[in-house]
Amino acid sequence: MTINLSKGQRIDLTKTNPGLTKVIIGLGWDTNQYDGGHDFDLDASAFLTDENGKVTQDLDFIFYNNLKHSTGCVEHTGDNRTGEGDGDDEQIKINFSKVPSHVHRIAITVTIHDADVRNQNFGQVSNAFVRVVNEDTNQEVLRYDLGEDFSVETAVVICELYRHGSEWKFSAIGSGFQGGLAALCRNFGLQV
């Protein structure tokens, strides 16, 4: 049974789902009517951070130009440049058993590619969601619908998966940023 979360809620992942080691983070969205002459290209990313919320090495940033972590713990399945169709628009796979000990949080984000040039923002995006699926059973464990809280933002931290002792938990963040991917990178301690 799927658990629906609201912004700010936290929930246990691995403790209440014994044996859960591999998940698929499915992200989806629609774009509102827009006549700016450009398609929307939304991009999912994962920032693997230390206990202070900072990425300690460039390889701990998973995105369309670095699809797979060297340990195999996080893998982006590929860039969907249009977001057309139903279901997940992009997916990130996580294997908790392979996450290096220096990684305490995995922040899942979505940015709008070339948002400033194209005059686009998350106010033009609707029905955005994230869902966590047990990769072994294909069962949806939880879902977080973002709602319509954004207007001028060009990047959003959707959620975080984080260590709590030997377990993993999920936090519904829904925090917007202006400045796109570059702003997120700086937020997580990467040089742009």
Rank of each mutant, 00 (worst) to 15 (best):
T2E: 13
L5A: 06
L5S: 10
K7A: 13
K7M: 07
Q9K: 10
I11S: 12
D12K: 11
L13D: 07
L13S: 05
T14R: 05
N17D: 03
P18Y: 05
P18M: 06
T21H: 11
V23F: 01
V23Q: 07
V23P: 03
I24D: 12
I25V: 15
G26M: 04
G26Y: 00
G28K: 10
G28I: 08
D30R: 15
N32D: 11
Q33R: 12
Y34G: 04
Y34D: 15
G37K: 08
L42F: 00
F47N: 07
F47H: 07
F47L: 04
L48S: 07
L48M: 15
L48E: 06
D50C: 04
K54T: 08
V55Y: 05
T56N: 13
Q57T: 13
Q57L: 04
Q57A: 14
F61H: 09
F61A: 11
I62H: 05
I62F: 01
Y64S: 09
N65V: 05
N65P: 01
N66Y: 03
H69Y: 01
S70K: 13
C73W: 02
V74W: 01
V74P: 05
E75K: 14
H76P: 03
N80F: 03
T82K: 14
G83R: 06
G85C: 10
D86Q: 13
D86S: 15
E90V: 06
I92D: 08
I92F: 02
I92P: 02
K93N: 13
F96T: 07
S97W: 00
V99C: 03
S101F: 00
H102T: 13
V103I: 15
V103S: 10
R105A: 04
I106H: 01
I108L: 14
I108P: 01
I108M: 07
V110K: 10
V110Q: 15
I112M: 07
H113K: 06
A115D: 10
D116T: 14
D116N: 12
V117I: 12
V117Y: 11
R118T: 12
N121H: 13
N121A: 12
G123K: 08
Q124K: 14
V125W: 04
S126I: 02
N127L: 02
V130C: 10
R131P: 01
V132Y: 03
V133W: 01
N134D: 15
D136Q: 14
Q139L: 10
E140A: 10
E140N: 11
E140D: 09
V141I: 15
R143L: 07
Y144W: 06
D145N: 15
D145K: 13
L146E: 09
L146D: 10
L146R: 09
D149W: 00
D149Q: 11
V152D: 15
V152A: 13
V152K: 15
E153V: 07
T154G: 08
V156M: 06
V157I: 15
V157H: 05
V157A: 12
I158D: 06
C159T: 14
C159R: 08
Y162I: 05
G165P: 05
G165Q: 12
G165M: 06
G165Y: 02
S166L: 09
S166H: 08
S171I: 01
S171E: 14
A172I: 02
A172M: 08
I173P: 02
I173K: 13
S175F: 06
G176E: 05
A182R: 11
L184I: 04
R186C: 06
G189S: 10
